Simulated scan of single mutants.
Amino acid sequence: MPDLDPQSIAAYWDAEADTFDDEADHGLRDLRVRAAWAGRLRSWMPRPPADVLDLGCGTGSLTLLLAEQGHRPVGVDLSPRMAEAARGKLAAAGFAAPVLTGDASDPPAAAGTSFDVVLARHLLWTLPAPERALRTWMGLLRPQGRLILIEGNWQASGDGPPYVPGAGALPWLGGVSAGPLVEVLRPYAASVAVEPLTDPVLWGKPIHDERYAVIANR
């Protein structure tokens, strides 16, 4: 397992917080992009209200969409500045959903221990032990709960993000293809489905790499 300093990782994302929402799929400032993500979330989620753990929530754009759709989200992010931005975004829209600072791979107990949905977007590549995290997340689901993973493999396009010292040893640095991810989840899930996310409206631009959602039902 790679030995990465959590403080260095948090500092990396703290430094990204001010400009994070400049990416179309992060800030969802473009109404077409926002509507596209809202529609996808609606199609994956159970009927509201559901208790949702949004892991690696960043600045809270998806957390806010979930709250607007009548769900009860709880956000978790390792970066204090990201978590602060998410709390501000939710509060500005009139929501009091909690956002905690903590390790998404092993969420703090204060976030809760039982959820209808666990959601993570573009998080697995950052984790030293992604397979262990997936087992932990499946264990947080109630019966008939679902794990929703929005993922991709950016290595295919040579567009993997720069990261912290020692990150070269991360198992899924640059992303992971759907096939290996599904195989990891199969022993813990009653069913696993993959949905390609190739619509450029979701990303605010054309894409040339693998992007998809995995929905694993307990």
Results as ranks from 00 to 15, higher is better:
126 T>L: 02
171 P>T: 04
145 G>F: 12
173 L>K: 15
127 L>R: 08
107 P>E: 12
128 P>D: 04
109 A>L: 11
152 G>M: 06
187 P>M: 10
172 W>M: 03
134 L>V: 09
142 R>C: 03
155 Q>N: 15
176 V>T: 13
120 A>K: 08
153 N>Y: 06
186 R>E: 12
175 G>I: 11
185 L>M: 11
153 N>R: 13
185 L>R: 12
140 L>F: 08
109 A>R: 15
172 W>F: 04
140 L>D: 10
158 G>F: 02
160 G>R: 14
179 G>R: 15
109 A>D: 14
169 A>Q: 14
167 A>W: 07
132 R>D: 12
144 Q>F: 05
128 P>Y: 04
175 G>Y: 07
177 S>W: 01
127 L>V: 07
182 V>W: 06
178 A>F: 05
188 Y>I: 02
108 P>S: 13
123 L>P: 02
136 T>H: 13
113 T>P: 00
176 V>P: 00
157 S>K: 11
134 L>E: 09
161 P>T: 04
150 I>G: 02
175 G>H: 04
181 L>H: 07
168 G>K: 04
183 E>M: 04
165 P>G: 03
169 A>L: 04
122 H>W: 10
155 Q>R: 15
139 G>T: 12
150 I>P: 00
156 A>W: 02
142 R>H: 06
126 T>Y: 00
190 A>D: 15
127 L>W: 10
126 T>V: 05
111 A>G: 09
113 T>L: 04
132 R>P: 00
152 G>V: 08
184 V>M: 05
148 I>M: 09
112 G>Q: 15
148 I>A: 09
129 A>V: 03
170 L>F: 03
142 R>P: 00
189 A>S: 14
129 A>C: 01
177 S>N: 06
181 L>Y: 09
122 H>C: 00
167 A>Q: 03
133 A>V: 10
158 G>V: 03
150 I>T: 09
159 D>W: 02
139 G>A: 15
170 L>T: 02
177 S>Q: 10
131 E>H: 03
152 G>I: 06
180 P>R: 08
159 D>G: 05
140 L>R: 15
131 E>F: 01
149 L>S: 10
121 R>A: 12
112 G>F: 13
162 P>V: 03
119 L>E: 10
187 P>Q: 08
156 A>Q: 13
114 S>T: 15
154 W>G: 00
155 Q>E: 09
116 D>I: 09
162 P>M: 02
124 L>T: 14
